[in-house]
Write a protein that binds this DNA or RNA. Structure first.
Lengths: 261, 261
DNA sequence: TAGTGTGAATTGCTTCACAGCA
DNA sequence: TGCTGTGAAGCAATTCACACTA
């Protein structure tokens, strides 16, 4: 996907990061493909697990297998952030974990605001994975008088009209929109006015934003429809064998990773 | 990229669909890029909205603008499913809607089973968008004794051990896994044993499946991390102007679409 | 010697630009 | 005349294959 897939301008320029390391700086000042950025996040999670298990090093082959990519792609991905491998040995788990964290900007926390605490929003607010991964939910908003004023996971639900003030106060950098479709654009405008420049959109609408604002869309209905397409294709292939149906390696690898309960 | 995004083998073969139309059959028996399949689902939703508003026809330009793609891409996408446009006029909304539905296999309902009705799973079970879009949730499963036996949205939560029997009985074709990571593989194996060949995975693990099974992964942590990367990049660009920071058109277009409350 | 880092080849997606039809 | 449908060009991402080094 894809999709997660498929975007117009796919690579981004990574300016030299403030911080240590001079040798790496020149290297970092290059373009990292968007697809690579998404995979780095996946590698990062696996490196965390490996570290917990006490592994000191991994080879590209091991890490690639564990994350469902091929090893050449993995090495190329890592080469975009610099050369931290040891030839003949592999990568030092802790060091690589740290480098990826730095590259993704996870070395400082990012406060997240969630707008819309209905069905899905409520689940997102209660998802413990965010805080643990450096994305503390700092504010919740809704318009429903039954919801405004309650606490979810210890966080007060405030009225949407206060978005600008509250986000500014708490240094929110990322907004998540989990409202019904018709409300999403207005909420988005509020977030943008509050200075938020990155938005994760769960509402089934195309958001209009100024060009400096980055939007990612998550659409579960589309995911299901893509799967439905595969079901249909398979059925047709079974009904009419002889036609070259499904085949070729079908790795269980797609857009990205996950969220448990 | 969307992923949604980045997959190994990207295009699929579409065998001739059973059903009417002989002229189209040859056309349909070709490969449709995965990226196109995902966008077709987006066009489909917009066509539904246009139909509700009473529109009879749309031009590629209008439909493209409304869905956030460029018109050449849209026309090429539609050309994969056949030639249903009228030169000088545009596309007939109802006919195109119907064709895309058929291509995606949405002309017959697909029963969905959801495993894991914790935080996220509960939200998914309550999401009204599925049933309305041809994906009725036909079964819910969990292992928690406090959950097994309750009803959510009128659907009984059953024990995971009954997956095989219940899925077979109800003709489930798509499974959604919203369990904690460690439980996901075992649940996946159960679904596969029950004959499910398409799985939407919300757990943060790489599922091992036989090659005929299609898996799509949705990982909210990865989405946030990709956004975090953009925040970091932007900050660095501001801190060090002169370096060529962000720029170029940044369309609010990514993997795919959405899910309201 | 095992395994990284990377130029070069390849594949597949996107965009262009225009011929052709209603 | 206006807009579709599509070959061809242009790009981005993946994969190959091997020089290189710890």
């Amino acid at each position: 996907m894809t999709e997660n897939d498929a975007r117009g301008d796919a690579s981004v320029t990574l300016p030299p990061q403030a911080g240590p390391s001079g040798a790496a700086a020149a290297k970092l000042a290059r373009s990292i493909p968007e697809a690579t950025v998404a995979r780095l996040a996946v590698y990062l999670r696996m490196l965390g697990e490996l570290a917990e298990q006490g592994a000191e090093t991994v080879s590209s082959e091991e890490l690639a297998t564990a994350t469902g990519v091929n090893s050449a792609k993995l090495r190329k991905d890592l080469s975009y952030i610099g050369s931290y491998g040891i030839r003949g040995v592999g990568y030092e788990v802790a060091a690589l974990h740290h480098q990826i964290e730095r590259t993704l900007g996870l070395d400082h926390q990012q406060a997240v605001a969630l707008v819309g605490v209905g069905n899905l929003g409520h689940a997102l607010a209660g998802y413990s994975g965010f805080g643990g991964r450096g994305f503390p939910v700092a504010a919740l908003f809704d318009v429903d008088p039954d919801l405004v004023g309650i606490h979810i996971n210890g966080i007060l639900v405030e009225h949407v009209r206060d978005i600008a003030r509250v986000c500014a106060e708490r240094g929110v950098t990322i907004g998540m929109i989990a409202t019904p479709g018709p409300a999403a654009q207005a909420v988005c405008d509020q977030l943008v006015r509050a200075g938020v420049e990155c938005i994760l959109n769960f509402a089934p609408v195309l958001l209009q934003v100024p060009e400096q604002v980055e939007v990612r869309k998550v659409d579960l209905a589309v995911e299901l429809q893509v799967l439905a397409f595969h079901v249909a294709r398979r059925r047709a292939a079974e009904a009419a064998p002889g036609a070259n149906g499904a085949h070729g390696p079908v790795p269980a690898t797609n857009g990205s990773a996950v969220l448990p309960r």
